[in-house]
């Protein structure tokens, strides 16, 4: 009847007993995606001498950054049992607005960045309103936004790239020898996402809503309001990704980030989140994004054609989720 075992006596993951090798082993066993990433890195290191160089690894980080930041946002939607298809378009739209505010309108950089973030946030809020109060399925609402935001990006830019002021280009560059700003932004946003998911009320509500929306409702969670928060946050993260992307290219392209929503969703799912909701972590999403980037980079180094790369990535996505499902079933 009574339980005298204290919390977590069985699933304790904290190090303490056992040496570091055992801890590493346990972490890898508990986390399929991380093991996959490690295996991938080892294989590529063996097959290509260029892979494990500082320059190349930083390159991988920069390539992963935009996808990862988008994916952190999408994690919120997926954990809550929803989806956001509009992040690529919203990122492009936010980037274009950054160019428009700073270059076309001549506003100060800082204000431009704030307004660009606001742009994505408002797009997300609109998604949230459609989903919470319009009762649209997230798939439909964000599909509409995917089209609308892309269209607005084209309208504002009249279909042409908008140059960014030189003073903003640092966001896409590397400080010193080995500090790429996109990677710093990625890690920062990852930290924010991790804290939101694990520590904030809204984050815990995401798991509750995704785990069982009716149970969440019957436990006093204001589901509609929380969904508004969720999709607004996704929009904010998309805007940040858009700014990083535009800064890297030194110009905001209205058709940038096309299809990135699929990479973002893939990263979230490879990272162990369930499309059914209730499960997912920021760390998993980061690993998912890194796997995609490492894979692309490695296949490039190995001279695999871009066409075959797509095939390989498709296989990896299917395998990752398949393994995860099998692991969960046992």
């Amino acid at each position: 009847m009574a339980i005298d075992t204290q919390p977590g006596h069985r699933l304790d993951k904290r190090p303490g007993g056992g040496g570091p090798p055992q801890v590493v082993r346990r972490i890898l066993l508990d986390n399929g995606a991380l093991s996959a990433l490690v295996v991938l890195v080892v294989i590529l290191a063996i097959m290509s001498g260029d892979f494990l160089t500082t320059t190349n690894l930083l390159n991988v980080g920069v390539q992963a950054a935009v996808t990862a930041i988008l994916a952190f946002g999408v994690t919120f939607a997926i954990v809550s049992g929803g989806i956001d298809l509009s992040v690529g378009s919203v990122a492009a739209f936010s980037g274009v607005m950054l160019g428009w505010f700073t270059t076309t309108q001549g506003m100060p950089d800082f204000l431009g960045v704030v307004l660009a973030i606001l742009t994505g946030t408002v797009c997300g809020l609109l998604n949230g309103v459609l989903i919470s109060y319009g009762k649209l399925p997230p798939f439909i609402a964000t599909l509409a936004m995917l089209s609308a935001a892309r269209g607005l990006a084209q309208v504002v830019s009249e279909g042409n790239p908008v140059l960014l002021p030189d003073s903003l280009s640092w966001i896409g560059k590397t400080i010193g020898e080995w500090l790429p700003v996109p990677v710093i932004v990625m890690l920062l946003m990852g930290l924010v996402a991790a804290v939101v998911l694990a520590r904030t009320y809204s984050g815990r509500a995401m798991y509750a809503i995704g785990g069982n929306e009716e149970a969440a409702h019957l436990s006093g969670i204001r589901v509609r309001r929380q969904k508004l928060v969720i999709y607004t946050l996704v929009g904010t993260f998309a805007a940040v990704a858009g700014i990083v992307l535009a800064s890297r290219l030194a110009s905001a392209q209205p058709n940038a980030a096309t299809g990135y929503e699929l990479d973002a969703i893939a990263a979230v799912v490879i990272g162990g989140a369930s499309l059914a909701g209730g499960v997912g972590k920021a760390s998993g999403t980061l690993i998912g994004a890194l796997i995609l980037a490492v894979l692309r980079n490695g296949l490039n180094l190995l001279d695999v054609s871009a066409f075959w790369q797509q095939v390989v990535i498709g296989v990896v996505i299917a395998l990752a989720v398949l393994l995860d499902t099998l692991r969960r079933r046992t």
Binding site: T200, Y201, G211, A215, A216, L218, S219, G220, G278
Partner: peptide, 27 residues
């Protein structure tokens, strides 16, 4: 209607009270 089946016992028990257990936005 009552449970988050895939969540832990701890998380299920905290479902109602987590809002009041928040300080400065953190649970």
């Amino acid at each position: 209607q009552g449970l988050l089946p895939e969540a832990s016992v701890a998380d299920n028990l905290a479902l109602v009270t987590m809002r009041e257990a928040s300080r400065g936005g953190l649970v």
